[in-house]
Design a protein around this nucleic acid. Structure first.
Lengths: 231, 231
DNA sequence: TCTAATCTGTGATATGTATCACAAAACTCT
DNA sequence: AGAGTTTTGTGATACATATCACAGATTAGA
């Protein structure tokens, strides 16, 4: 079965499953399926029952919420190797937010109930999941700290640094964010307006801290940029 | 040994350990110790190696960070039955924030390495911990959403509702927050100024949505208060 | 119980950022 | 390739909230 072979190959690239033997991976493969989602397709909505977890093999996914006025808050932007949602294990209920594809993605879908069964039989897997969840908690606390203790100018910088770290590729000492985010998307990630992001980005470019090339990609010197954060 | 008996009794009140048999609880009791912390004493600081977890039997603890200018951000306010930190399992490193006692507290201290060993031998415990961590993640995402999508007036209301839910006691259809927080503390929980909290609280009192009695306690009608959030 | 320290309330002012408006540029779709 | 849509840049203005200032109330310490 070629398809199951693919799933295996893809799951092996997920950090959560790294170091697992073929035999250990087998039960997870057998309950999972793979699917390609085009950009802009909705993976799930907040109200749906939380009955599956996703692992990203390729592409980019955004997790977001919208309020009554339609204002969007991007909770996180996830890419290959990452899992979502983080908060569903052994809890009944609905998804904590919406998920939509930003860049065409291949996802492994696993029914959460079956995954939980495998989980409790494999302490190794539990340990890794505890690590992942712990990391997520630290991450969210840092986000909250950024939002509370820093002004918008610095929040933009920290967002760029965060995106650089995860999505960036190092090319001759420069970091390139190879995904194009619109100003509005960047704004929604930190809860500011698109205009402010536009102004801040141009300020940073004038200071030669970032470059905005024709394709819309961002080029950054992270160390110099970090020095801009004084608070 | 009376002391171990106490620890047992105290651990049984922690939701994470509820439903565990005496036999299952025993290994955790044997590695734990109990200690009383007075108000204002520091439990740990951010830079210290994360080598233990705490369970609150009584009292109130705040988890907070401070920036270079001394500005404080209260990450969370925890009370009896709760555990902290949440993000330390199977990860090396330091505490993610500082912890200080707000109200005289009795804490159970458990070395994290030993706890981890017990954890991986008890799937039941793992399941509960996954639930707790999942809840924490949802919680933090909601906090971030509050901060991004709502104005200060509404953030204050949501903070009061949150405090009411956890610390509140129901008395003849009113909820009383039996812990006194200063305006500055409330402000630091949501990242605003003490003056704004003072003004907002008085606004809410004028609307008869909350009451501020002599002892400084807050009395709230949660349903009416919730209706104030229109966004 | 007195004194110092901290907390509260409230007006005045400053300021950062959202919002509005619109033109130009860049994409998208058939 | 051209029409329509979406994005960007930038000035002008509005507004929420921080900051400053200070007086009075409250709490804590000796």
């Amino acid at each position: 079965m070629l398809k199951k072979e693919d799933i295996k190959k893809h799951l092996q690239t997920v950090p959560l499953f790294k170091e697992l033997s073929d035999k250990e991976l087998q039960p997870i493969i057998s309950i999972s399926s793979s699917r390609i989602y085009n950009a802009r397709s909705i993976i799930f909505m907040q109200e749906e029952p939380l009955d599956r977890v996703f692992f990203i093999h390729s592409g980019i996914v955004k997790i977001y919420k919208t309020d009554a006025t339609g204002k969007e808050q991007i909770v996180s932007v996830l890419e290959d190797g990452e899992m979502f949602p983080h908060a569903g294990f052994f809890r009944q209920g609905t998804f904590p937010a919406n998920a939509e594809v930003i860049k065409k993605a291949q996802l492994i879908v696993t029914p959460i109930k079956d995954f939980e069964k495998i989980l409790i039989q494999h302490p190794e897997l539990c340990i890794k999941l505890f690590r992942v969840l712990g990391g997520k908690i630290v991450d969210l606390q840092n986000r909250l700290e950024e939002k509370i203790l820093h002004n918008t100018y610095e929040q933009v910088i920290m967002l760029l640094l965060r995106l650089t770290k995860s999505n960036g590729e190092k090319h001759e000492n420069l970091y390139k964010i190879t995904t194009h985010f619109t100003n509005r998307e960047l704004a929604n990630m930190i809860g500011t307006s698109r205009e402010t992001v536009s102004r801040t980005l141009n300020q940073l470019r004038k200071k030669d801290l970032i470059g905005l090339d024709a394709e819309g990609f961002y080029v950054i010197d992270p160390d110099k940029l970090k020095e801009e954060i004084i608070h």
